[in-house]
Amino acid sequence: MTEPRPHGSARPGGRTARTRAAVLAAAQEELSTQDYASLTVDLLAQRSGVHAATIRRRWRTVEGVITDLLSEHGTSAIPIPDTGDLRGDLHVMAGNIAGFHASPGNRRLVEGMVAAAAREPGAAQVLRETFAGRLRQVSVLLERAVAREEVPPDTDTVEVIAALGAPFYYRLLISRRPLDAELVRTSAESAYLAATHGVFRRAEGAGEATPGEADGGQRRER
C-alpha cells in the first residue's frame, strides 16, 4: 500500500476548494513577509478569513498547510530553457533556480517544507515526490543533449540535474549564504563539464531509475 496523502492535500470542489485556496494564499503571503518559524494557525486564520478551528480540523498544523502548499506549487514555476546547447541550457537553468529562490516567499516555503519533513512523514513524502518529479521534468535538458551527441548516450540525466541544483540548496539551507552570480556560473560549469566528460554515465547493467528509485527508494510496494 502507498502512504496516504498528507492531511488537507485533497482537491475538493465548491466551498471546500475556496477555503483551501484562501488558506494556501494566506500562507504564501505570510511567507513573503516573515520566516516560517513565525507562522501560526491564528495568523493564517486572520489573513485568510477562515476560522482557526477549520484550519486545524483540515490541516491540523502549520506544517500541514505548508505541505499542501508545496504539493500545489512546488518548484514548477522555474522555467526550463531550450537554448539549443547544453552549456547554455545549464547556465540559464542555474540562473532560473537562483532567481526563484531570490523571492523570500519561495525561499521560506522550501525552508519550511524541510523543517516540516523532519517531523511529519507525510511532509517528507511530499518533499521527496516534488523534487523527484521536478528532476525528471528538467532532465529533458540532458535528453536533448544526448540527441545532439553532446553527452554519452548512457548519461544518467536525472543525476546531472541533481548535481546542478545541489549547490543551491546547500547554500540556501546549510551555509545560509547568498545565491550569487558566481554560484550560478560554477554550478552550471561543473555540471556541464562532468556530464560531457562522462562522469554521469550509468554503471554497466544499470537501467533507468524507476519512480520509486528516483525519489530515494522511499515508496512502499503496492
Score class of each variant (00 low, 15 high):
residue 5 R to P: 06
residue 5 R to F: 06
residue 8 G to W: 03
residue 9 S to V: 05
residue 13 G to R: 01
residue 15 R to L: 08
residue 28 Q to W: 10
residue 29 E to C: 03
residue 31 L to I: 11
residue 35 D to H: 07
residue 36 Y to I: 07
residue 38 S to D: 15
residue 45 A to F: 02
residue 46 Q to W: 09
residue 48 S to F: 07
residue 49 G to M: 12
residue 51 H to N: 15
residue 52 A to P: 05
residue 59 W to R: 05
residue 59 W to L: 03
residue 66 I to H: 04
residue 67 T to Y: 05
residue 72 E to D: 13
residue 76 S to M: 12
residue 76 S to W: 10
residue 79 P to T: 13
residue 80 I to G: 06
residue 88 G to N: 11
residue 90 L to M: 06
residue 91 H to E: 03
residue 93 M to R: 15
residue 94 A to R: 07
residue 94 A to C: 02
residue 99 G to K: 10
residue 101 H to T: 06
residue 102 A to P: 02
residue 102 A to I: 02
residue 103 S to F: 09
residue 104 P to E: 08
residue 112 G to V: 04
residue 115 A to P: 01
residue 119 R to D: 00
residue 120 E to V: 11
residue 121 P to G: 09
residue 126 V to G: 07
residue 130 T to A: 08
residue 132 A to Y: 08
residue 134 R to G: 03
residue 136 R to G: 11
residue 137 Q to P: 10
residue 138 V to H: 04
residue 140 V to S: 14
residue 143 E to N: 10
residue 146 V to F: 00
residue 147 A to G: 12
residue 155 T to N: 13
residue 156 D to A: 15
residue 156 D to F: 00
residue 157 T to Y: 02
residue 157 T to P: 01
residue 158 V to D: 15
residue 160 V to P: 10
residue 164 L to C: 12
residue 165 G to I: 04
residue 165 G to C: 12
residue 170 Y to D: 12
residue 175 S to M: 05
residue 178 P to W: 06
residue 183 L to W: 09
residue 192 Y to N: 08
residue 198 G to L: 05
residue 199 V to T: 14
residue 199 V to K: 09
residue 200 F to Q: 03
residue 203 A to V: 06
residue 203 A to W: 00
residue 208 E to G: 02
residue 211 P to K: 02
residue 213 E to C: 01
residue 215 D to Y: 02
residue 219 R to N: 12
residue 221 E to H: 10
